[in-house]
Amino acid sequence: MDRTWLHKLASPPHFYRIAGRLAPWLGWPALALILIGLYGGLVLAPADHQQGEGFRILYVHAPSAWLSMLVYATLALASGIGLIWRIKLAHAVALAAAPIGAWFTFVALATGSLWGKPMWGTWWVWDARLTAELILLFLYLGFLALHGAIDDTGRADRAAAVLALVGVINLPVIHYSVYWWNTLHQGATITKLGKPSITFDMLWPLLVMLTGFTLCFAALLTRRVQAEILRRERDAAWLRAELAR
């Protein structure tokens, strides 16, 4: 198998240039999709038969919760690649992903709380789904704290990567918590197989928002990885040529 493209992609100068070219192509469509999704979710989608207009929080809660897990999967995958193949760029990707993931986990928890108060009757319950999502936030913050506490970048990368891999166990717990235990949180709406549990006029803005948030993460990640590469490669020869441009 020809893997030269992989080695090329993993080289910081190459990745830096590709990321710089890619970022606007991810960011602007993300913005457009999120605006369409906001309009669709707030205006075009009909009110729910049980929750009335209150169900619209779904359109920011579900994409944030989706990103909180997608970002962690990205972070853990990058950490694993970094540990196994000793690819420095992978560690840079993991470190760049962490603050993004922490933010969206926070949004998922806060919007869930704003949704739970009127519908369930409480801001917070210690049920398995909510607790596992809170632990996810602590994993992101722990990853950042551990990385920040070690001066040597290589050692910090490896220590934080081990923590990231230990925390992977939390991802299936979050996803399946609503099936494994009696939880207050309801089951999944669109990931379950079979007929969707949501009508199309309510579903499409959600799919647009999910795509928009995902592209937004990709755009944020490319910019943050670029910044991380600049910090790590400050003595590299290629940077001189790059910055002169």
Partner: peptide, 18 residues
């Protein structure tokens, strides 16, 4: 001492539900 509502994962407009 406390009563919470548990809703399901189905979302639909009232007409469809009816």
């Amino acid at each position: 001492e406390e009563v919470l509502a548990k809703h399901d994962e189905n979302y639909m407009p009232p007409e469809v539900a009816d």
